[in-house]
Structure formats: structure tokens, C-alpha cells
Simulated assay, not measured.
Amino acid sequence: MSETIPDPATPAADGPGAAPRKLQIALVDDDRNILTTVAIALQAEGFVTRLYTDGETALKALLDNPPDLAVFDIKMPKMDGMELLRRLRAHSRLPVIFLTSKDDESDEEAGLEQGADDYIAKPFSLRLLIARIRAILRRAEPPGSPARAAATPEEPLPASLSRGRLFMDPARHLVTWAGQPVSLTVTEFLILEALALRPGVIKSRNQLMDAAYPDDVFVDDRTVDSHIKRMRRKFKQVDPSFEAIETLYGAGYSFNDG
């Protein structure tokens, strides 16, 4: 089932002089109370919300008419959030935030392994959720888009980056290794960029978290470890001998290709 909580301000049509398009957030959770509470809070922040109570209905809608970002609960009937994300990632890099059980660390790691951009443990703060949504949207959208316009101040994207066999183009969210494309999430891209900007320099987990989450949003250490683990797996699918991201136990990570 899907539904939309009425929004008092209808988005203006695109065109000269028209107001910027409102950003759409899809919420997928079988708990109607959570859906309603989060939707009202997001609408108060200027977002348009699309609500789904099961994964099967949500998957078709997200592929047919993608929103700007989606928030998934993990434990749902018919199709749980993990399976929903797995199927979505086969066709889309839509930014996704997972809602996980507070005491189940395996949910958090599994969600990141499947390609989630972030996770928040229940019970969660609406203020924290909105901060993470805004942070991911600003990183995912190109300059001039409504999400980037909401960032203060606007920061120019860095130029393309070449380090050995690695090539990164932030403007196109493009990553290649030895000429082969590697599909990274926004968070993975920013962590890799922070490492590649200074080859051989050890970056602590805190420094990598600051690069990927620049809005003073709390993220714990194992989140970075999970992102690194998943990145390595993606690069090894292109090059089984990939070893450019090095772990320095107790210190952090570094990038060195050759």
C-alpha cells in the first residue's frame, strides 16, 4: 500500500520563474505511526513524502518514479528492507537510509553491505534523521539542484582526481579502476576521495567520518569499517589483486597504488 499525507503547499511546475521543485522522500515502514510522524516532520521541513507499508509496493514505485531519497525499515512483511534494497540496487543508486533495531548490529552491517548510504537505530530522533537526509541529499545532488541550493555555504566540487589506476570525477560521480567502472555510493565515494587526495597518508576513522558526514552527524567507528570493507569488495570484482586501500591497525586507513 502507498499513500501521501496531504501537503498544504503544492510544488510549483517547472519553468521560468517557477519555484524550485520540492524534494521527494519515500518512507517504507509497516508501522503507520512511524510513517505518519516522520512524514509530518519532513513536510514541515519542505519535503514531499511518499509512504509505503510494504516492500513489494515500494520497489515498483521506486523504480517507476524514483524519489530523491528513501528511508527503509528492515523488518517488514512480504519483502523486508534488506531484500528491497538488494533488488533496488540491481537497477538504481537511489540514496537510501536504513532504520535498524537498536540492539542488532548485524542489521547495520548487512544494510551497509547491501549498499545503504547510512543507517539510524530505532528509537531515533527526528532531528537526527532530517540532518542525515539533508547531508546525503547535498552530497548526492549536482550543483544547481534544489538539494545543493539548500546547503550553506555552497561548496564547489573538486576537479577530477587521478591516482595510479584510480580515476574519480565528482561532477559525474564517476569512479574507474584501470579503466573499468566501479559503482560506489555517495558515502563510499567521499571516503575514497578523502584517502586518494593524499596517497600514503594515514586517515583516522574520525577524519574519514568528517569527510563523509560533514554536518556534525554522529556516526560510530564500525560504520566506516563497513564502508571500507564493501568498497574493497567492489574493487576486487574489477581487479582481484586490488590492495590500494590499506588498513593500519589502531590508526586508520591509507590509499597507495604503487
Rank of each mutant, 00 (worst) to 15 (best):
E56R: 15
L23R: 14
S226N: 11
A41Q: 01
I40G: 06
S162R: 11
T4I: 15
I191C: 12
A58N: 11
K236M: 12
E141N: 06
P142C: 05
D54E: 14
A244R: 09
R138P: 02
H227T: 01
I34T: 13
D31T: 11
R89V: 04
R232G: 11
Q207E: 15
I25A: 04
D7A: 09
V175R: 05
D68Q: 09
D31E: 14
K122Q: 06
I228Y: 06
F72V: 02
P199H: 08
A151D: 13
K60G: 00
G164R: 01
E56C: 11
T152E: 13
L166P: 14
G81L: 04
A44V: 12
L174I: 02
A9E: 15
A178E: 10
A41G: 09
N206R: 12
Y52S: 02
R50Q: 12
I34H: 00
K122L: 03
T185A: 12
P143M: 01
R127V: 15
M79E: 10
P153S: 11
F124R: 00
F218N: 05
D118Q: 07
F235H: 14
E246R: 10
R86K: 14
A159N: 13
S162Y: 09
R21S: 10
D221R: 10
A121Y: 02
A121Q: 03
S101C: 10
I120R: 01
G81F: 06
R87E: 12
H227C: 10
L126W: 03
F189S: 06
T247Y: 04
I136Q: 05
A140Y: 15
R132V: 02
D68R: 08
E83L: 02
L42T: 08
N256E: 12
L42D: 01
L174G: 00
I202F: 10
P6H: 11
I130T: 14
D104Q: 05
F167I: 01
E243G: 01
S125K: 07
D257S: 09
S92M: 06
P67E: 07
E246F: 02
L94P: 08
A171G: 04
F255G: 03
D225L: 03
L112K: 10
A61T: 15
G55L: 03
P143I: 00
E105F: 02
G164A: 00
